[in-house]
Design a protein around this nucleic acid. Structure first.
Length: 423
RNA sequence: GGAGAAAUGGCAGAGUGGUCGAAUGCGGCAGUCUUGAAAACUGUUGAGGGUCACACCUCCGGGGGUUCGAAUCCCUCUUUCUCCGCCA
């Protein structure tokens, strides 16, 4: 959520920047500013009414104390009108504040200056590429075929137990999955991220805090009986640790990593592109989250990008890094780098990580602040990234590492899974 | 799930209708003393809105109500604790 004070100050620049998202925010901003003026006028009126009524109450108290009951009762009559009007003003204010909030919720984050205009993922800019694309044997298979051949992932069984998009990992498949989680967590903790385990269900306030609610309501599984949501990413519970917190600037950088399953409804997604592990309703992910001083958040973003690179390099997977264009940029993000691994047998790139700086967009909703040099409270910057999302990394490994004899396990993972071949 | 108790500032803890945004202690910060530190002493120390700055308004778990006036009374929700039941 954007800050009202910033909208007032930078309206013109914001309108230009939001054009990159193909949004004309001008009318929206005008409405907001007008409503805000109305809000503040109403607030002032209410404050004045309350001030009068407070001082009257004090006087009445004094009169009662000194035994001047008749005068006190006379004065009581005066408060009736004030009470009525403060009640009305209060109700008006609530209505205005709700409308204002609703409008603010609808505006996405302002894209960073490096973000290019664009309409879809085809306009994303490749900024880095590394790793040789392996030459596969003639009869190379996509990962869903390999999964069946070596009996390591059972999609049909998942359908039986739950439904499509909930695979069952078996034997070495399950072990490889566990190995990846442990490996990622180790890499992240080595890079200074504190490992943390968080709830997999979150309340409504948390959903609003990180921006999944209200706009992406349909993306999350909702447990109605308790009004809780299954997390679509660890970002939600981990970042919400800091909801309503004021941290000390000396605590920066705050770095957390956590493994969680992620649940996404992905309504309406079907077809070849969602085959196998390409898109699931439940998947595992190891996330990194940072809370930073505004001056250092872009340096932090670069560090996160380098960190994810180092993992993919060690896994020896061919990958590329994209800077998302305005049209593909997430609602809450100011700048996002996507990582894609090349899936050789499918001959396409698969997104395996998304690293973003949200600047103050989430912090404003979260009321996540820090005490600055002058002792003033300032909104902090929040960032997060996947390091990494499991299923597509697994798909990449299965497809890129397949041989006549079976699937070779990347060297870095052998100590974690205890075998070198899936055969 | 049943019965009871409770929720106050960074923490502990007073406050049961009227100068209470809130005693006191601890912690934090600044100062005095000291070569330095500790101790002691003095001062200071919640958040949000609003203002050039004041004034002023709001917040004592959340929401609603009673009252001229609520941290204090009532309703409701949430959470915590104790006892019972159940249980990995």
């Amino acid at each position: 959520m954007l800050q009202l004070s910033q909208i007032r100050e930078h309206k013109a620049n914001y309108i230009i920047a939001l054009k990159k998202r193909n949004i004309d925010a001008a009318p929206h901003f005008d409405q907001i500013i007008k409503l805000d003026e109305h809000r503040r006028a109403t607030q002032t009126e209410l404050d004045n009414t309350l001030a009068t009524s407070n001082s009257l109450s004090k006087e009445i108290g004094q009169l009662f104390k000194t035994g001047k009951v008749a005068e006190a009762n006379a004065m009581k009559a005066k408060t009736v009108e004030l009470k009525e009007s403060s009640k009305n003003l209060g109700e008006q204010l609530n209505v205005i504040a709700d409308q204002l909030q609703e409008l603010l919720y609808q505006i996405p984050n302002i894209p960073h200056e490096s973000v290019a205009k664009g309409s879809s993922d085809t306009d994303n800019e490749e900024v880095f590429k590394e790793g040789a694309i392996p030459k596969l044997m003639q009869n190379a298979l996509p990962h869903w075929e390999l999964a069946k051949k070596y009996d390591i992932i059972d999609f049909e069984l998942g359908v039986k137990i739950t439904g499509a998009g909930f695979p069952v990992y078996k034997g070495k498949g399950a072990r490889l999955q566990r190995a990846l989680i442990a490996y990622f967590l180790d890499k992240n903790t080595q890079a200074g991220y504190t490992e943390i385990q968080v709830p997999h269900l979150v309340n409504e306030a948390s959903g609003y805090g990180t921006g999944q609610l209200p706009d992406k309501e349909g993306q999350m599984y909702h447990v109605q009986a308790d009004n809780l949501y299954l997390i679509p990413t660890a970002e939600v519970p981990v970042t919400n640790i800091f909801r309503d917190e004021i941290v000390n600037k000396d605590e920066f950088p705050i770095k957390y990593t956590g493994y969680t399953p992620c649940f996404r409804r992905e309504a309406g997604s079907y077809g070849a592109h969602v085959r196998g592990l390409n898109r699931l309703h439940q998947f595992d992910k190891v996330e990194i989250v940072r809370v930073e001083h505004p001056e250092h958040s872009y340096q932090a973003l670069d560090e996160m990008v380098e960190h994810v690179k180092s993992i993919l390099r060690e896994l020896e997977l061919p990958y590329r890094v994209l800077r998302l264009c305005g049209g593909d940029l997430g609602f809450t993000s100011a700048l996002t780098y996507d990582f894609e691994v090349f899936s050789t047998a499918q001959d396409r790139w698969l997104e395996i990580s998304s690293v973003s700086n949200f600047e103050t967009f989430q912090a404003n909703r979260l009321k996540l602040r820090f005490k600055d040099e002058n002792g003033k409270n300032q909104l902090a910057h929040t960032l997060n990234g996947s390091a990494l999302a499991l299923p597509r990394v697994l798909a990449g490994i299965l497809e890129n590492y397949q041989t006549e004899k079976g699937i070779q396990v990347p060297k870095a993972l052998v100590p974690y899974c205890g075998f070198e071949f899936i055969d």
